[in-house]
Simulated scan of single mutants.
Amino acid sequence: MKHLAILAACTASAFATAADAQETAGSSGLSLTTGLDYSSGSYSADEKTEILVAPFSAAWRNDTVRLTASLPYVRIDGPAGVVLGPDGKPLPGVTGVAGKRSGLGDLSLGGSITLPTLPIGLGIDLTGRAKLPTSDPDKHLGTGEADFTVGADFTYPIGPVAPFLSVNYRMPGDPEGVELRNTYAASVGASMVFGRSIAIVSYDYAQASSPLAKDARELFGAVSTPVTDKVNGTLYGTAGLSEGSADYGVGVMLTLKL
């Protein structure tokens, strides 16, 4: 099961999970996704940072394998020294410029393998992602280094409800002039199918990559439903519970299945 990591890395995410859950067992093929994501918060700084992301991503899947590639358009409006970090959230303390800057962000490549369901009904996915520094270094949208994430997702369906636990280990690059550390992140929640739609709620926690930042804790909610036979629409929102999170975030995604 995937969880939300859409900011800049278009990580993915629970809204992606909601879209995936519309697909029937045994389905395979290519899908394209785009949308808009807006968030605002101070992230332990004195000034607020506003971020707008328009992700463009492609995914291919079969019964056991899912491959993704995403390249977002990013606009940041905030104080100097704030860029998007390995977890897709603002990272203070990196060389940067104040005010508005925008452009294509970092390319994110991901993959997951679904293991055979255990006899007790537990589903397990093993995941990996690489974020490559493709953004313009003069615009200070990212750290300028490659970041890597590995993780596992556990799902236990109970009728129309599926509780889940997602854990990740992030390994950031080593940008000049700032100390970044390897971190853990986890999400716990549940999805529920009603008719042809699905809703998902979760509590998300992520350690801060920089000693200058705070750990992130937030609530996430999403609803996904078919718009046509080929298009899924997803609405989602987040509410920050700590200084390391955005005060709030909202987004909409459209996924076309080819």
Rank of each mutant, 00 (worst) to 15 (best):
G78Q: 04
G251W: 03
N182Q: 15
M192Y: 14
S202F: 02
K48S: 15
Y169Q: 12
G105D: 03
L165S: 09
K214H: 14
A190L: 15
G189V: 07
K100E: 13
I51P: 00
L84N: 01
V161R: 10
K230L: 11
F154Y: 08
L258G: 09
E47A: 15
F148Y: 14
I124Q: 04
D46F: 04
S40W: 08
G237V: 10
V227A: 07
D138M: 01
C10N: 14
G35H: 04
Y184K: 07
A216W: 00
S210H: 09
D215S: 11
G96Y: 02
F15P: 09
D20S: 10
A146T: 15
P86D: 07
T95F: 13
D37K: 01
L109T: 11
L107F: 11
E23F: 11
S209R: 04
D138F: 03
P163R: 08
E218W: 12
G85R: 08
G85Y: 02
L67K: 02
G159R: 09
L254P: 04
R75V: 07
Y156I: 06
G26V: 08
D63V: 09
L219M: 11
D229N: 09
D125Q: 14
P175N: 09
F194S: 11
Q22S: 05
P160I: 12
V178W: 10
